[in-house]
Design a protein around this nucleic acid. Structure first.
Lengths: 344, 344
DNA sequence: TTCTCTACTGTGAACGCTCACAGAGCATGA
DNA sequence: TCATGCTCTGTGAGCGTTCACAGTAGAGAA
């Protein structure tokens, strides 16, 4: 009766029927045990669980899905260009976090990379056909046609970071960008800096805008006029960090600190500063944002604003499951935290 | 009859029955059209395709899987510690490549991260229960208990890189490590270096061993005795590259080149050399391995050995699908290529 | 006692598809 | 003429679940 290995081929797995026979009960009872165990006598439940263990039974999700109409799986949709995915370890952190959070609910994750236009169409079709119950959406520029379509089709959707152009009926989980930026700039002031530059994130995204707003607010509150020559745009990529740093050095050689809107850009900034012979933090302090793995991979290690990735992942999953369960969309804003390391 | 959007809720999708009615044929005929179109008259096929388009029909994979016993999906199994996944962009390249290759066959990918022991058990169960048709296995230290179990359960399996301890009955796709190493060391000789050190990969993996072997072979062929003080072990991680470089500099200050068994380690090496005031490539040439995104993210950009990631992905998928289709396991070795950049 | 309510159990039907089979129509060859 | 083979089509069964429903048993109330 054991389902042991050794055999080369794959044998036919036991069904709910086998379990029922083995436990001396009916299919219905087994099914009830499988689905929460309500209205089942303790004796029956035990017999069933025993039988499940003995037979090595695992539910056939296809059969279940066929009748329930749910797939009990969700999609992880990444609408970023490949290069960004290859470069930025934040995606891995998020992907890993969400996968684990879902695993604890026994829900498999389908990975969907929306690159080409064809891909997008294929993926949209796949999702709207009901092959997943919901979607975790990750993209920095999230004014996304795919997202738009999914929302219209009524597919449960949770974005990472506040999406734009999707109205208010879409869930999202985000860190408190403005507050994080404020903390960082305040910290730079605290360590005695006064000529504080900023390399922003993409300003067509709420995150980018908020981080910039926090920067300006704190400076203004401190009685320091915002010097537009000290603010240069970036797009979170390492290359844009390098470009930004070069521009900053040219426009404001007397810079004594930079707040960089992502750790990845900060990595680029550090490289440029080193080439330019500016010591960090002695000559110029550098503050990042994200606390991505990149922050500690670099010397000096980055002082940065921690986005609580683990909580972001688990919240995304929680909100998505709630929404699949019929609840209304929700927005979750999580607090950030200043992590002081060697670059300030 | 259109399936158009606008409605907030999800309506019930059309079934094969609806398509059949719409096309004036039977379910069987529609099914035949869906599955390759053999034994279908051109007229019927056209009518069916028209009806599919009109109704917006998408096959219900659960129903199909229930009867075929296939899931028409595969798992991408990563048995690496999280930190490695976060640090090494090679995983992203591979993940992305495989996902796309599978997408072109209309096969979804389930992401499986085997972290904790519990996770491993859960995943093994999931897979052996037949919820995926096959598994793409990625791990550097692949003497893996999960892999072992899957192989014994007869699950189609393709590893990236030659796995150890799994006998010969498991498929794998790998780059020609030895040959790549030979090319690099020959190149270092060609540019006039004679004191060539090496930081190896993990020596409990075939890849690590082969790259070391290639290094030794070429030196010997060139009449240069292998100096064991010039060879230090690494594990592909950036940190181990830094440690290795420091050890090398201490043991052999007269070093004029290093062959580093991964780009990620090389990144660490470059940092150490820079701190030590050694100019690259003037004082010391650095050769990497992988041609990962890390290679060009660094200054000077790395001369490295390109692993053909795109071909590796597509071959892994091809071999897996073949094996799912009943063919025997196969080993594929792909050629590498020297990519000369600024570090040599 | 009898009736009601609750806790529990078993039984068909159905989910949407594929597969095996039977059979129709037509051409070919004996 | 009939048999044989081919292409094409429709039909019923069944994949492994869940769900609605019917039904049983026992406790408590009337």
């Amino acid at each position: 009766m054991t389902m042991s290995s050794s055999a080369g081929g794959r044998r036919k797995p036991p069904t709910i029927h086998d379990v029922a026979r083995e436990a001396g009960v009916s299919r219905g009872t087994v099914s009830r045990v499988l689905n929460g165990g309500h209205y089942v006598s303790p004796a029956a439940a035990e017999a069933v669980n025993d039988a499940i263990r003995r037979t090595g039974y695992v539910v056939n999700r296809h059969a279940r899905s066929l009748i329930t109409g749910r797939s009990d799986s969700v999609g992880f949709l990444l609408t970023e260009p490949q290069e960004r995915f290859f470069e930025d370890p934040n995606f891995n952190v998020l992907l890993s976090g969400c996968t684990q959070a879902l695993a604890s609910h026994d829900i498999p994750v389908l990975l969907m990379l929306a690159g080409t236009k064809d891909e997008r169409r294929r993926i949209t079709r796949y999702i709207t056909a009901g092959h997943v119950d919901g979607v975790l959406l990750v993209s920095s520029h999230s004014g996304d046609p795919v997202a738009q379509e999914l929302r219209e089709a009524g597919v449960p959707l949770v974005a990472c970071g506040k999406p734009i152009g999707l109205g208010s009926k879409v869930s999202y989980v985000a860190a408190d960008d403005r507050d994080g930026a404020r903390d960082m700039v305040r910290h730079l002031l605290d360590v005695g800096r006064r000529r504080i530059g900023m390399i922003t994130g993409p300003l067509d995204t709420p995150g980018g805008v908020e981080r910039l707003a926090g920067y300006k607010e704190v400076l203004t509150e401190a009685g320091i006029a915002v010097d537009e020559a000290l603010v240069v745009p970036g797009d979170y990529s390492k290359a844009s960090g390098e470009a930004g740093a070069e521009r900053l050095l040219a426009q404001a050689p007397d810079l004594d600190a930079v707040f960089v809107a992502s750790d990845l850009m900060a990595q680029g900034v550090l490289a440029v500063l080193q080439r330019a012979g500016r010591r960090v933090p002695d000559d110029i302090a550098v503050g990042g944002f994200d606390d991505s793995p990149a922050a500690t991979a670099v010397t000096p290690q980055l002082t940065t604003i921690r986005q609580p990735w683990d909580r972001i992942s688990t919240e995304m999953v929680r909100v998505l499951l709630a929404q699949i369960g019929g609840e209304d969309p929700a927005a979750v804003i999580l607090p950030t935290e200043l992590v002081r390391r060697d670059s300030t």
